[in-house]
Design a protein around this nucleic acid. Structure first.
Lengths: 224, 224
DNA sequence: TGACTATTAGAGTATATACTCTAATAATGG
DNA sequence: CCATTATTAGAGTATATACTCTAATAGTCA
């Protein structure tokens, strides 16, 4: 593999494991057994690496999150989108967690991430629309749809961060791919009340497969 | 005011404005016109300052988010909680945004924030329960309630972060208190489908008052 | 007043971090 | 084979950051 790609790969792996803030360019170089000079030959700076990873992430999402506007959607479609989204989220999980600082420092990323967000929101709305046309969701107004899409976005992009805090106790909280997938349960929860009678049971059953297991502490806290 | 309190106040203000990562202890000291030595006389380190601010934040939330278990709740109750929560969120807005790194470095904060999260979730559930008993929300199972509370938590705690990205274009995106309050619209969106017929219109009207104005870019993105 | 403690200033330090520069080594193409 | 370009090593640097240490000053209370 080309050095440039190895840098991207190693950076992503380290960011995911340690968090972007805890990973320096020197770490990345050391991890690969190359010199800092070499790293800086391939990338202007750390923000450049991060931006490039963002482009990969965006490309991945754009690959599957293209919702056909000319036909109704099925439950199978919906589940494919959900699985894909959470899969992408898993591979680039550092991204939404460390976003705050990244956006304050890189103008380019700020602009592009903003657009990316709105593109995703538009696709989420298209999914809702398609499901509605497929008779799976009850119809709702434009305003309703927009608000629902936004809530879905918030739940999806921040599920990882929540898991990290909720499981903070157990050995610094390493989250598994499986746990992340359980965010699907939360997203389906958002939409359950809009599912038509006809499909209600089917969606409920599907959703049940993803039910999260919250850590024990969750109970304890009730006594406060 | 005591120096210790001035340090806390200045730190909070700077964190909110610049983001925790961009504010050093030296900055804080300089901002107050005191020496670093003085600052470190009052606090062991930066994490100590942050932890103390967290305690203030938690105390504030605990002050109002105490839901009576012995009587049904009214819509007025609900709105009070929402307003209070978003108000607290505003004053300590740096907190949820910069959380990621804070939790990786401070064991104590990690534990306490985790508990705090579950306490809040329990109170949110109590609100849902109280509204149900007040005939405002339709009844739902325990599992339903838990999932709904969690979604509400996700929306509430990450609304600020979303605003920051969505408004990234306009002058680095300074968010107003008013815009933050519009998160109430999103939270009410979550619960709308569960509102009983009797209260439907009233809640809809209330909710309308908080409707967010998304930036123009939101539209543009549809063509992608 | 005088002893003691609390507070503060301010210079200073160890470490880390992002990044640069030069020179050497490979690869490539004519 | 030579000339040119691409890649890499590795030492090095400017700056920042969190934090320390000593000595001075202010407050307190017997």
């Amino acid at each position: 593999m080309k050095t440039r790609d190895r840098i991207l790969q190693a950076s992503l792996a380290l960011f995911n494991e340690e968090g972007e803030r805890n990973v320096t360019t020197n770490h990345i170089a050391a991890h690969l057994g190359i010199s800092p000079g070499n790293l800086y030959y391939h990338f202007r700076n750390k923000a450049d690496i991060i931006y490039t990873i963002f482009l990969q992430y965006r490309a991945l999402v754009n690959q599957y999150l293209v919702v056909p506007r000319d036909r109704p959607l099925t439950i199978k479609d919906k589940m494919f989108y959900l699985e894909s989204v959470f899969d992408g989220l898993w591979h680039y999980r550092f991204f939404h967690r460390d976003l705050e600082y990244l956006l304050t420092t890189d103008e380019r990323l700020r602009r592009d991430y903003r657009d990316f967000t709105f593109q995703c929101l538009a696709e989420i709305r298209a999914v809702l629309q398609g499901l509605q046309e497929g008779g799976i969701l009850r119809s709702h107004s434009d305003g309703e749809q927009e608000a629902m899409a936004l809530n879905a976005w918030l739940v999806v992009t921040n599920w990882m961060a929540f898991l990290k805090t909720a499981h903070a106790a157990e050995g610094d909280g390493d989250i598994s791919r499986e746990q992340l997938r359980q965010g699907i349960y939360q997203v389906l929860t958002l939409e359950m009340p809009y599912v038509t009678e006809r499909y209600h049971d089917e969606v409920m059953d599907l959703r049940e497969r993803y039910r999260p297991e919250l850590p024990e502490g969750a109970v304890m806290a009730t006594a406060f």
